[in-house]
Amino acid sequence: MTPSPTDKVMTVGQLAARSGVAVTALHFYESKGLIHSTRSSGNQRRYPREALRRVAVIKMAQRLGIPLATIHDALKTLPIGRAPTAADWQRLSEQWRQDLTLRIDKLLMLRDQLDGCIGCGCLSLQSCPLRNCDDQLGVQGPGPQLLEPGADPAL
């Protein structure tokens, strides 16, 4: 059943259908405090209509690689009882922009250094910035210390 525009609440099935998010994911979001529901007299979940917009914010943030804990903190800054607005999204996206820029810069640096690591095999050389920055594992012996823990170096 599709809610009418005058409905103030949605069932979990209606929210799932409208948002494209599985019921189990909605239950998970609720268990993490990302969305909230009330209970009907029959103890069924009822979500306010603004939960639909909150789910959209959660999904977009996840697509950007924002951790759920960070999404949770951001959603706590939104007023309860109304859907997030474009201004709310602008404020949230500004908070996340610097972190995203730093992650993009780090990924670009790793991408540009990747060719130097392909084929080396040991992943513990002093020059390997990808797996063993500053050769912290070199004191444990030669070879791929993290890939073969406890392996006999004589083999």
Rank of each mutant, 00 (worst) to 15 (best):
T11P: 03
T11M: 05
V12C: 07
R18I: 09
V21W: 07
V21T: 06
V21P: 10
V23H: 03
T24H: 13
A25S: 10
F28V: 02
E30K: 08
K32L: 15
K32M: 15
K32F: 11
G33F: 14
H36C: 11
S37G: 00
R39E: 10
S40C: 08
G42I: 01
N43Q: 08
N43F: 07
N43V: 01
R49I: 06
E50A: 09
R53E: 15
R54P: 10
R54L: 15
A56D: 12
I58A: 07
I58N: 05
Q62A: 07
R63V: 02
P67G: 06
P67F: 08
P67V: 05
T70Q: 12
A74G: 11
K76I: 11
T77P: 00
P79A: 12
P79F: 02
R82L: 11
A83K: 01
P84F: 09
A86W: 03
Q90W: 09
R91Q: 07
L92M: 15
E94S: 06
W96H: 09
L100H: 05
L100Y: 12
L100P: 02
T101G: 05
L102V: 08
I104A: 13
I104H: 00
I104L: 10
D105R: 00
D105H: 01
K106W: 01
L107E: 12
L108T: 09
M109W: 15
D112S: 09
D112W: 02
Q113M: 09
D115E: 10
G116H: 08
G116R: 04
G116C: 06
G116P: 04
G116L: 06
C117V: 14
C117N: 05
I118H: 05
G119D: 08
G121Q: 00
L123F: 14
L123P: 02
S127P: 02
P129N: 11
L130A: 04
L130Q: 10
R131Y: 13
N132F: 13
D135E: 14
Q136D: 12
L137V: 01
